[in-house]
Computed example of a mutant assay.
Amino acid sequence: MPQMAPIAWLSLFIIFSTIFTLFSMMNYYSVMPQTPKSFVSQKHLTSPFNWKW
């Protein structure tokens, strides 16, 4: 089995690194976070316990 030349390893590394970077960017930007419409309309849930230590 012949050995691969160093330039072939370098080109494989560059190709796989580019694919990994593009895949990561696509996954990161594909999800749109849901922002709350307004903070006033949300009811803040508070604990019924009032601890006074």
Rank of each mutant, 00 (worst) to 15 (best):
P2A: 15
S41Q: 14
F20W: 06
H44E: 10
S30I: 06
Y29F: 06
T21H: 04
F39R: 10
T35Y: 05
H44C: 11
I15T: 09
L10M: 05
L45K: 09
I19L: 06
M25S: 11
V31D: 14
T21G: 08
K37V: 08
M1D: 09
P36D: 00
F39Y: 07
F23S: 14
V40Q: 15
F20R: 09
F20I: 03
I15A: 09
S11F: 01
V40N: 14
K37C: 04
S38P: 01
S24A: 13
S30Y: 10
L10N: 07
I7P: 00
I19V: 00
I7H: 09
I15M: 11
P6L: 00
K37H: 07
L10H: 04
M25P: 02
S41M: 07
K37M: 03
T18H: 11
Y29V: 11
T46P: 01
A5E: 14
I19E: 07
F13Q: 03
P33S: 00
I7K: 07
P36G: 00
I19H: 04
F20H: 08
Y29E: 15
W53M: 12
T21F: 05
H44R: 12
T35L: 01
F16L: 10
Q42D: 05
Q34K: 02
Y28L: 15
P2E: 15
M32Q: 14
I7M: 11
P48D: 15
M25N: 07
I15H: 06
I14N: 08
P48K: 13
Q42A: 09
K43H: 08
M25K: 06
F23I: 02
T46N: 13
Y29A: 10
S47Q: 02
M26P: 04
N50C: 03
F39L: 05
N27L: 15
S30A: 13
F23T: 10
S30E: 14
S24V: 06
T21M: 15
S38R: 04
T21S: 10
F13E: 06
N50E: 13
M4D: 13
F20N: 07
Y28R: 13
T35I: 03
M32V: 14
V40C: 13
M1L: 14
T18S: 12
I19W: 05
A5T: 12
P48E: 15
F20Q: 08
T46S: 06
S17R: 10
Y28V: 03
A5S: 11
F49K: 12
L10Y: 02
P2R: 15
S11P: 00
S17F: 11
F13I: 09
P48Q: 12
K43Q: 08
S17Q: 09
M26R: 13
W9P: 05
K52E: 09
S11H: 01
K37R: 09
L22E: 04
L45E: 12
N27P: 02
W51L: 14
M25E: 14
P2Y: 15
S47H: 06
W53N: 07
Q34A: 08
P6G: 00
H44I: 04
S17Y: 11
V31F: 12
F23L: 14
P48V: 03
Q3G: 12
V31I: 13
S17N: 11
F39I: 01
S41W: 03
K37F: 03
S38W: 00
P48C: 08
M1Y: 07
M25F: 13
P33V: 01
M26E: 14
F13C: 05
Q34P: 07
M1N: 07
S41F: 03
A8D: 13
I19Q: 05
Q34G: 06
F49R: 13
